[in-house]
């Protein structure tokens, strides 16, 4: 297993997991989220091929209410 930091918390994943695998694990269809891995935005068409590595820092962001 590998361990990444997801939104500031530890998350374990199977080796070779892609960003789309992470989305499945957290229950997101990926349509309404932005994903940043180690400061780089991962666009939707790259999510299935972008493999996560041990110690990657992943941010998953959504829109919430704000003024």
């Amino acid at each position: 297993m590998i361990t990444i930091e997801l939104n500031g918390k530890q998350q374990t994943l199977p080796p070779g997991a892609a960003v789309t695998d992470l989305l499945s694990i957290i229950g997101s269809d990926g349509n309404t989220v932005a994903i940043v891995v180690n400061e780089s935005i991962i666009r939707p068409d790259k999510r299935s091929t972008h493999l996560l590595k041990d110690a990657d820092r992943v941010e998953i962001l959504v829109f919430a209410g704000g003024g």
């Binding site: 500031g8 957290i26 229950g27 309404t32 962001l61 959504v62 829109f63 919430a64 209410g65 704000g66």
Partner: peptide, 29 residues
């Protein structure tokens, strides 16, 4: 219409405003 960026929280999926706002006609975020 203004919106804010927040970390995804799997316990608070209702926080995602993107889909309902985008579904409204003539709305620019």
């Amino acid at each position: 219409v203004t919106v804010a960026l927040r970390r995804f929280n799997r316990e608070q999926l209702a926080d995602d405003l993107f889909s309902p706002l985008k579904a409204l006609p003539e709305i620019t975020l």
